[in-house]
Design a protein around this nucleic acid. Structure first.
Lengths: 135, 135
DNA sequence: ATTCTTGCAAAAGTTTTGCATCGCT
DNA sequence: AGCGATGCAAAACTTTTGCAAGAAT
């Protein structure tokens, strides 16, 4: 049972900004950018809407970088590069990811991104939770 | 330049517990389990030692689940299953991961774990940070 | 003696939430 | 009018840190 959503100019602005950037931002980044244009915007609203986007599948989380959750407006699953030093997040073209996985290359020439390690996580429901949700 | 480490019984206990479990615990879980046996243990010490393990490569982080960082005493890279509902983390045998990636099966029969989506993140240094660390 | 380790508590940082108000339908 | 959306501030949580005391080398 999904609740009805009403139009909200702020929600639209947050989503538009999220979709317009390749930085894979966190809540604070979005807030800082939007605040000058929307003076009566609060950080809580950014958080609330990001959670709505995630629930609705309009956006997705990439996970936490340096303690901050980062989001992607592109919901089609694709791998990412995270800089362990500065926390930058880059999209990784699927074909390059394939090559990386296959030959374990440490360097991604074009982006000049040196790979240290990879994390792969599958999300779903464990047996207990799956059976509970069905019944 | 890695600092010298002195022996610490508490550090040993934390690492032993981390290695003995398949739960991929967070700091609080380890603390709760150790506290009865080591009454003068503090949560801060668990955090400090987990960070030491990570720096030393003795343990590694799997990322954040429900806002809490989870650790693995097995440092050989391997994929994980995370239950979106209860936060349980399971190891995924590499050969099963391969099959999942190849055919995109939604169900992992043996573990009865239904897969919703996957996240793959490569960690390394971006061009800027890489050049800074070299020079 | 030196330096690492730790308990404790405060601090820091991120995210959530309660509540009154405002806006959309 | 009814209910969702929001500002604001407090609260909740996880993690880090400063400092003095204790332990290992």
């Amino acid at each position: 049972m999904v609740r009805e959503r009403k139009y909200s100019a702020k929600r639209d602005a947050i989503l538009a900004l999220l979709r317009s950037t390749k930085t894979h931002p966190g809540a604070q980044w979005l807030y800082d950018r939007l605040k000058p244009q929307i003076p009566d915007l609060s950080l809580g609203t950014v958080y609330r809407n990001l959670n709505l986007f995630r629930e609705a599948g309009t956006a997705c989380s990439l996970g936490t970088v340096n303690g901050e959750e980062r989001f992607d407006g592109i919901t089609a699953p694709h791998p990412h590069l995270v800089c362990s030093c500065c926390g930058a997040v880059l999209d990784l073209p699927p074909e390059k990811a394939e090559a990386l996985v296959q030959n374990g290359k440490k360097i991604l020439a074009k982006e000049s991104f040196s790979i240290d390690f990879r994390k792969t996580v599958f999300y779903g429901l464990c047996r207990d939770c799956d059976s509970q949700s069905v019944s």
